[in-house]
């Protein structure tokens, strides 16, 4: 039996999928994006977060039965309101077996997987088979830049994108617009070319950079060192997506 580690469960998470949803934030992520606004999600171990509201331990270990039990208590309400459960992170793929078991125990709830796509194909297929919708992050298409800004190669991510499309699981591509990094015309065009016409694609969401990204680093005793100019306005170039026939929007 595999247990999971979760750093937060947030009800009424309005921006994580349709209807009224509860989002489970899994702890631990293979990437280390320079702009990560949830630094406490990166380590797969519990850690103390200190905020003006006082210290709190982030990271609770659950059995699949425990977590499913918590989520099922509100199943009727979530179903009544066109919603369900979103698994986000951190990175759900790193705990795929745990999440798959939790989903199997859910009371018929709509499931969204919010993933960076970095993980083994086998892990990803475990979740694809159980997800109603995937929010799939694409950050940088250039392999070197990807490695430089996230700490990892994007090979698995691009591979899993094709796997997802072949499975016909509906998906939304999410692109964080990081000033001077991901928001270049080259990168956005490359993303548009890559996803254009992919079966299962619903749309592309461009997520404008949040200048509060560094807000939580001090709370876990880390320094925020983005390596790009936070103040620079982002290039929300929707036109390259239109040109490629892709429905894209700024959210």
């Amino acid at each position: 039996m595999v247990n999971g580690i979760v750093f937060d469960i947030r009800e009424f998470s309005v921006h994580d999928g349709p209807g009224i949803r509860t989002t489970v934030f899994l702890k631990g992520c293979p990437l280390a994006c320079r702009w990560c606004h949830n630094p406490e999600s990166q380590s797969a171990r519990p850690q103390v977060v200190t905020s003006p509201a006082g210290p709190r331990l982030a990271g609770t270990v659950y059995t699949p039965e425990e977590l499913a039990g918590i989520l099922n208590r509100q199943a009727a309400i979530l179903k009544d309101n066109e919603g369900g459960i979103t698994f986000s992170g951190g990175e759900p793929l790193t705990q795929a077996a745990f999440i798959a078991r939790v989903i199997d125990l859910l009371d018929g709830l709509h499931v969204v997987i919010d993933t960076c796509g970095y993980g083994s194909e086998a892990s990803f297929r475990l979740l694809l088979a159980r997800a109603d919708l995937v929010y799939y992050d694409l950050k940088l298409i250039d392999p070197a830049l990807h490695r430089s800004f996230t700490g990892r190669s994007n090979r698995l991510i691009l591979h899993n994108l094709r796997v997802m499309s072949e499975c016909r699981t509906p998906f939304v591509i999410r692109v964080p617009l990081i000033p001077g990094v991901t928001d270049t015309d080259e990168n956005l065009s490359a993303i548009a070319q890559l996803v254009s016409g992919l079966p299962g694609l619903i749309r592309v969401d461009l997520l404008p950079y949040n200048p509060a990204a560094g807000a939580k680093y001090a709370a876990i005793g880390r320094k925020f060192d983005p390596g790009y100019d936070e103040a620079r306005p982002v290039n929300a170039n929707l036109a390259v997506f239109q040109a490629a026939g892709v429905d894209a929007r700024l959210t």
Partner: peptide
């Protein structure tokens, strides 16, 4: 209390409406 950031667009407004309906239905 909800952060004003919850209310971005018509879809969010509808979700807040569903939350209020949930209050009544419970």
């Amino acid at each position: 209390e909800l952060s004003d950031s919850v209310f971005r667009d018509a879809e969010d407004i509808r979700k807040v409406a569903m939350l209020v309906r949930t209050f009544a239905r419970l």
